[in-house]
Design a protein around this nucleic acid. Structure first.
Ligand SMILES: [Mn+2]
Ligand SMILES: [Mn+2]
Ligand SMILES: [Mn+2]
Ligand SMILES: [Mn+2]
Lengths: 220, 220
DNA sequence: TTTTAATTTTAGATAAATCTAAAAAAAATT
DNA sequence: AATTTTTTTTAGATTTATCTAAAATTAAAA
């Protein structure tokens, strides 16, 4: 259907739009895909011809309904494969992203539906990201950035917004993994370092580390 | 490492050489890959440059040790994914080949080793083909073509040499699946039709159907 | 051993995805 | 408002894998 490359462009446009909520710029795409602005312009014309994006020269792009639905299917595949790799093949959460980047392009609908069933219809991937259902619907995420909470709040880690292996390994070493409950015991006034209590252990983390942690304050 | 396309050429050369035990001809490769002889020649030059094949103009090709080992790794991936699709995702043996054609190109060694472990180190794929181990060694296949046996022989179906969905569906309808035990009750002298007894049921199959069935006569 | 047929290779084109360098447009500064 | 900077687009090449048509080589038949 769509080439490997086209799929990667759609996915990147989807993610960038989610963050910025503004038409996505050529340079931003080039940055994410490690390519040049000129190459991006070429591909944008192609995707516009295929009615996958709305593209006006110099104005950035948004996904059409068709483009959005395609992007979501790719994200669904990516996240389901990540669950498979962690739950069934016992990979660490820091090892699976790159493998899933390849597996996500194996496009045969029944494969994904059966994989989903085999995995027990998981709601979230190993990084806490929501997995869209087969019709492309996401559950509504009830989540807050750890940095937004005041002192003396209790929260449960439900996700991370940074998927690099060094970062995830670091969190794991600190014991800050998904599902863990924590209490913000203090926020240092000088540099904002967070003093946490997690599973009875005192941990202090910088704002740089904390900024990518998503938590839930529901169910205490 | 190697492109999708290069991997497919290596796999095809490996398979053709196994059948013919002679240097593989340009046209034969073109036939298997649904491409043109001229395209094959181009690719053969490239593979020869990469020391994956031994290529002399007009003389056909053989795989180098490196090419052979690469081809075997791809076959290993293909067959392990087929086992996964049948055993874990409950696909039929006639549905998995095309999906495995895509999955086999996801090349990350630890993925395949963990998949192998997860599947319990299977020896054969759903079509009875042997799965090479991680060092590329095949078990020795003790198998005979069903057409080579005389009347009144008992045998067990251990594989098929034709993987198309219509053929496999046909066998399944007849109850001729892997592991089934059968008795050759007669061979019609006029057109060679085989009269089989399989699981108490009398079945007659043409030579065209029988020619792709592999059996074992060991263990009765 | 010619002649014919089949196979394989070259020559030259094309399509997809990329690039660099230069031009054009938009945004930010003075 | 004019100038500078940033961003984006075009123009023109390059790389990879493919193709058709014609030439070269090998194999088969007469
Ligand atoms: Mn990921
Ligand atoms: Mn993820
Ligand atoms: Mn197969
Ligand atoms: Mn198989």
């Amino acid at each position: 259907m769509h080439s490997f490359t086209e799929e990667n462009y759609l996915k990147v446009i989807f993610h960038l739009f989610q963050v910025q909520k503004m038409p996505v710029q050529t340079n931003a795409i080039a940055g994410k895909l490690n390519t040049r602005a000129a190459s991006v312009t070429d591909m944008l014309k192609k995707l516009a011809d295929k009615k996958l994006i709305n593209y006006i020269r110099y104005q950035g792009v948004t996904l059409t309904e068709q483009g959005k639905s395609t992007a979501i299917q790719i994200i669904r595949r990516h996240r389901l494969w990540e669950v498979f790799l962690v739950e069934k093949l016992n990979f660490g959460w820091d090892e699976v992203h790159d493998i899933a980047e390849e597996l996500e392009h194996v496009g045969y609908q029944p494969l994904i539906e059966r994989l989903d069933k085999f995995l027990g219809y998981p709601k979230r991937d190993p990084h806490g990201d929501l997995i869209p259902d087969s019709s492309g619907e996401f559950e509504i995420a009830v989540q807050t950035g750890l940095l937004e909470l005041p002192e003396n709040t209790r929260a449960i880690i439900i996700g991370v917004t940074e998927h690099s292996s060094p970062y995830l390994k670091h969190l794991e070493k600190l014991g800050l993994t998904i599902g863990e409950s924590l209490l913000i015991e203090g926020i240092t006034s000088y540099d904002g370092t967070l003093e946490l209590n997690c599973a009875g252990k005192k941990i202090s983390i910088s704002r740089k580390v904390a900024q990518h942690i998503l938590v839930s304050t529901k169910n205490q």
